[in-house]
Write a protein that binds this DNA or RNA. Structure first.
Length: 481
DNA sequence: CGCCTTTGACCGGCGC
DNA sequence: GCGCCGGTCAAAGGCG
């Protein structure tokens, strides 16, 4: 509840919040640290420096935050430019041109005010629509929940966070399936904590398939791993059939019995694409940096399994992420042929060029979300804000006046929007926010709890990975990386 | 010393 | 029953 409120609260002023947060966090360059080796990884969310920065590749210069004054100045400059043209034609009458200038200025100011009003109206309409959407989306999971409650024993739906490990299996009917959560973990119990591998196929019913729901994130990245804010420990690596790249297995180590696993593998067709598959839900509070991905995965899986994602339109989630990309290829797809129901969030439809276009840039995602021209501002790789900060700092920025984007000319707005949406933190966090709203499932209980319990000072929750990444460590695999 | 990755072995499911 | 395959375990070694 709080989370939805957070997200909605933050939504009407995304530009203001992100620009503000970004400009703030770009200066807060946490040396990071913690023990462990330096790794090359994609920093998906964190507002802190990770070890992903390649040595010798300095951080791009920080773009100045866009301020309302700047935008206003641009308008005034434009006005003056137009007035210059008028001056040439009106050079005969100096006093008349002065009056004409002032009249023009007044007219532009009026238009300014009118645009402000339009912006306010659009914002209000946006809020109303979002509220309406949320209300509609909340009704559907409720119906689904009623159905599940009628057919199964409600297990984890109303339980505290420590028991909410089943990603979308809150309707789990078998108590033994909760053993991964309630169990003490460790090697002796690890065999029981394999809900997707060992037990799943035996169940054979719908709950089993729900339990095994996966969320796969495809992202274009040269980095070997996604820094999604959680701590992961690699426990295995296998050569998967049909893919020369090895598949690495990670488990969450932020809590003893956290059942969350993830698999990381490079795409066989395009090795610049990193495929990260998440399974399970964290049974512990998450740092803000981890909440975005956790919300994304759990909400996407919830959406998939609750049937709220229209089967006829697999790009629904993509449209939910950003309406501006509704015309692009689908970014959220459902894999029906997979052994487990899988939601794939495809973040690889980036602008042409990708990493090759910016060889100086550190490893980064290339987000496809905004089909906009390349931002004139430096790309915010390793940016210092994350979408989680959006939710965590939105309340503190609630009193800030919205930035005057309505005052800016179209190019300025486009540039600012492109620069913002070029940041993977923003886009993925936005996806998380929207999918959380739409999914609305039980996960929000402990996600929200994490949001309430942890603020933005997350400094040590990166993925820790060896510099020998999953692709290079396998001696049998010589053609990765 | 503790935590991590590596990597071969092991286990269970599935298809033939 | 056998082999394949995906997933996991756990011993060994590395690193700070």
């Amino acid at each position: 509840m709080d989370k939805q409120g957070h997200l909605l609260d933050a939504s009407p002023r995304p530009l203001a919040c992100f620009l503000d947060n970004h400009s703030r966090r770009m200066s807060a360059d946490d040396p990071g640290g913690g023990r462990g080796r330096r790794s090359v990884e994609v920093d998906f969310f964190s507002g802190h420096k990770t070890s992903s920065r390649v040595a010798g590749s300095p951080e791009p210069p920080l773009p100045p935050p866009i301020k309302e004054e700047d935008l206003t100045i641009n308008m005034q400059l434009l006005t003056q430019k137009e007035d210059d043209d008028d001056d040439r034609s009106a050079s005969a009458s100096a006093s008349g041109s002065q009056q004409q200038l002032q009249a023009e200025l007044g007219r532009m100011n009026e238009e300014n005010q009118r645009l402000r009003g339009m912006l306010a109206q659009v914002t209000a309409s946006y809020q109303a629509l979002q509220m309406h959407l949320m209300a509609l989306m909340q009704q559907q999971p409720r119906k689904q929940e009623q159905f599940l409650n009628a057919t199964t024993i409600p297990a984890a739906a109303e339980q505290p966070a420590s028991n909410s490990s089943t990603e979308v299996g809150r309707s789990s009917s078998k108590e033994k399936e909760d053993s991964p959560d309630a169990g003490g973990g460790g090697p002796s119990s690890s065999k029981q904590a394999l809900p997707w591998a060992a037990e799943g196929r035996q169940l054979g019913d719908q709950q089993a398939s729900m339990r095994k729901a996966r969320v796969s994130v495809r992202a274009r990245s040269e980095a070997p791993i996604i820094a999604d804010g959680c701590q992961w420990r690699k426990y295995g690596q296998k050569m998967a059939k049909g893919n020369p790249c090895p598949r690495a297995y990670y488990r969450c180590t932020m809590a003893n019995a956290c059942p969350v696993r993830k698999q990381v593998q490079r795409c066989a067709e395009d090795r610049s694409i990193l495929i990260t598959t998440y399974e399970g839900t964290h049974n512990h509070p998450l740092p803000p940096a981890a909440m975005a991905m956790a919300s994304t995965t759990s909400a996407a899986a919830s959406m998939l399994l609750s049937g709220s994602m229209p089967s006829a339109d697999n790009s629904f989630l993509a449209r939910a992420v950003l309406p501006s990309c509704s015309s692009s290829s689908s970014m959220a797809t459902i894999s029906a042929s997979a052994p487990f129901p899988t939601v794939t969030l495809d973040l690889t439809h980036g602008p042409p060029g990708g990493a090759a276009a910016r060889p100086h840039a550190p490893p980064s995602f290339h987000m496809p979300l905004l089909q906009a021209p390349p931002p004139p501002l430096p790309l915010y790789n390793q940016s210092k804000f994350s979408g989680l900060h959006m939710s965590s700092t939105a309340s503190s920025d609630a009193t800030r006046p919205p930035i005057g984007i309505g005052l800016a000319d179209a190019d300025t707005v486009t540039a600012a929007a492109a620069a913002i949406t070029a940041d993977p933190n923003f886009t993925v966090a936005l996806a998380a926010a929207i999918t959380s709203i739409i999914g609305g499932g039980s996960q929000q209980q402990h996600h929200g709890q994490a949001a309430a319990g942890v603020n933005a000072n997350n400094n040590n929750n990166n993925v820790t990975s060896s510099s020998n990444n999953t692709a290079t460590t396998n001696s049998t695999n010589s053609d990765t990386q």
